[in-house]
Design a protein around this nucleic acid. Structure first.
Lengths: 213, 213
DNA sequence: GTCTATAAACTGATAGAC
DNA sequence: GTCTATCAGTTTATAGAC
């Protein structure tokens, strides 16, 4: 702890670099050079590259789960009325914003790290996510499902992945997508505006009546 | 061409391995060993690893574009009625099935390769996709947009990415997701069944009335 | 806790014999 | 067109001095 927090500097550099180019594409050398620390520091403080990847991930995932849980607690305490899909989705995204704005870079790096964890078969990371994230995920899922009891559970289960895919894919590529929008329409959308487009889309996607069409 | 098509064997092995573990995570040595060809053969036949990646991608993308285009041609020839969103989506997915079933592995590897191209910042691959895919993409997009003229173009543009994300994310992880479904519900869904869940979800997502809610 | 030096293995790519 | 052998560079990780 002589230097202004070596650990913190490594985590900051690693988060930005992993999100930008992927886990395997980022070497420990690039991270330590960017962070202005010695190469050996990573293995000293974290043990291995895999452990560093998980630590980087935790810094986003843990606060998010905590934040979502406490927001759900507060809402359930404030009113006896059941939480409907729309409100649940809104709580989800406001928790995302709330928990990431303290950390560098905001929402996009977190979504990129999440997308990469699924895209590349980072098996170790996937298991790690389920362990740290499982309880919160189940709680949220059950709230949604309680509001749409008529939907077949398996169909509902797949719709959750449709929702996850739409969210992670879009927000993790927010910058490049927004740049194309700027070039093609001359219009930008802030990430908050994109989320406000995403919220109703996801709500209708989840509640889509099977009979309709 | 003395061995039963070295080029083909390299492409098959590379496609399966790239889809399974990612581009950077797959070495040329792993590919050539799996394909039972000499290490030097990749550089002899393709020139470089990047060129191999693009060749692997082309084998899925080119037939798909061709198939989608000819299906749209046939439909436009058969009837003067405008193509509505639901029908366009249905043509999209049947083209996906049609064009991939000839190639090894079917739909999932293609979706994985596509997801990886977006997730990892494979800049060269992204440019390559736009070049080979741009015209077909624009044509399809304009058909959709013509059926929903009241939606703000920028909002529509973002919804296309929501759609792309839901599709690519879910289908590229079809196997692991389906396995969880098996464990949790004791029920499986074939990839065709998942697509038949996806189609109405995507249609409502695209057509979601802004005023609704 | 930080550093240098280095191990041990792997990477994509190529030259040259056959 | 296929092979061996090898180059030159990279990777993660660690031992040991300070």
């Amino acid at each position: 702890m002589s230097q202004p927090d070596t650990i913190e500097r490594i985590l900051d550099a690693a988060a930005a670099l992993f999100a930008e180019r992927g886990y395997s594409e980022t070497s420990l050398r690039t991270i330590t050079t960017t962070a202005n620390v010695n190469l050996a520091a990573v293995n000293y403080h974290f043990g291995s590259k895999k452990a560093l990847i998980q630590a980087v991930f935790s810094r986003y995932l843990a606060p998010f789960c905590e934040c979502l849980n406490s927001n759900l607690d507060a809402r359930e305490k404030a009113s006896d009325q059941a939480i409907h899909v729309d409100e649940a989705i809104q709580i989800l995204f406001s928790s995302l914003f709330q928990s990431t704005e303290a950390i560098g870079g905001g929402l996009e790096p977190f979504m990129r790290l999440l997308g990469l964890a699924y895209a590349q078969s980072q098996e170790h990371l996937r298991h790690f996510i389920i362990e740290e994230y499982g309880d919160t995920y189940r709680r949220f899922m059950e709230i949604l499902q309680a509001d749409m009891p008529d939907v077949d559970p398996v169909a509902f289960y797949w719709r959750l992945y449709f929702m996850l895919g739409a969210t992670v894919f879009t927000l993790s590529s927010y910058n490049p997508i927004n740049n194309i929008s700027k070039a093609d329409f001359g219009e930008e959308r802030s990430i908050k505006e994109v989320v406000s487009l995403l919220e109703p889309s996801i709500s209708t996607l989840l509640r889509a009546d099977d009979a309709e069409r």
